[in-house]
Amino acid sequence: MAIAEITVIPVGTGDTSVSAYVAECQKVLESQKAIKYQLTPMGTVIEGEMNVLLKTFQKLHEVPFQKGAQRVVTSIRIDDRRDKKGTMDQKINSVIHKM
């Protein structure tokens, strides 16, 4: 199981707001049954099997193009841990437990 953070940024749209693009990306995520995700103010954290995440990243990257953007910058950070199972909740709970 991998945990990743993705930020999809449409460039040159003529508008400073990106919430409509974020909403469309969230709709794509809702349709993906094999992942868990959490919207944050600066991106989206996604949890799932690596092969599923990679396909999901491609779908998310395409969203602004489908809405008319001519350029898209996508940043992805992946935490792929193989020594033990890690989840978004487990990572947060680990920090809380140490506080």
Rank of each mutant, 00 (worst) to 15 (best):
V18G: 00
L60H: 04
V18D: 09
Y37K: 05
Q38D: 06
G14I: 11
K27N: 07
D80A: 07
K67V: 03
K67H: 14
D79Q: 11
S75L: 08
L54P: 00
T40K: 11
E62G: 02
N93L: 12
I76S: 04
G68S: 08
I6T: 04
Q26T: 04
A23P: 00
Q32M: 06
M99A: 14
I6Q: 01
K27L: 13
V73W: 05
A34Q: 10
K59N: 03
A4H: 10
Y37F: 15
I46M: 07
I96H: 02
A34G: 05
M50S: 11
D83C: 09
S17V: 13
G68H: 05
T16A: 00
H97D: 07
Q32H: 05
S31P: 00
L53V: 00
V22M: 03
A34Y: 13
Q70M: 11
D89T: 13
E30M: 15
S94R: 08
I9T: 15
A34V: 15
L29R: 01
R71C: 03
S19H: 08
L39E: 05
G48I: 01
I6G: 05
P10S: 08
Y37S: 11
E47Y: 10
G68W: 12
K59C: 07
L39H: 03
A4G: 12
M50Y: 13
I92N: 04
F65K: 07
N93W: 12
K33S: 15
Q70D: 07
R77Q: 06
M1S: 12
N51W: 09
E47P: 06
S75C: 03
L60M: 08
K33F: 08
K85F: 12
V73I: 11
D15Q: 03
P41G: 07
R81P: 09
R82C: 01
Q70N: 06
T40E: 15
G86M: 09
N51D: 14
V8H: 10
E30T: 08
V52Q: 04
V95H: 12
S31D: 04
K85V: 07
G86P: 00
V52F: 05
S31E: 10
I92F: 02
E62A: 14
Q38T: 15
P10Q: 07
S94F: 14
Q70V: 05
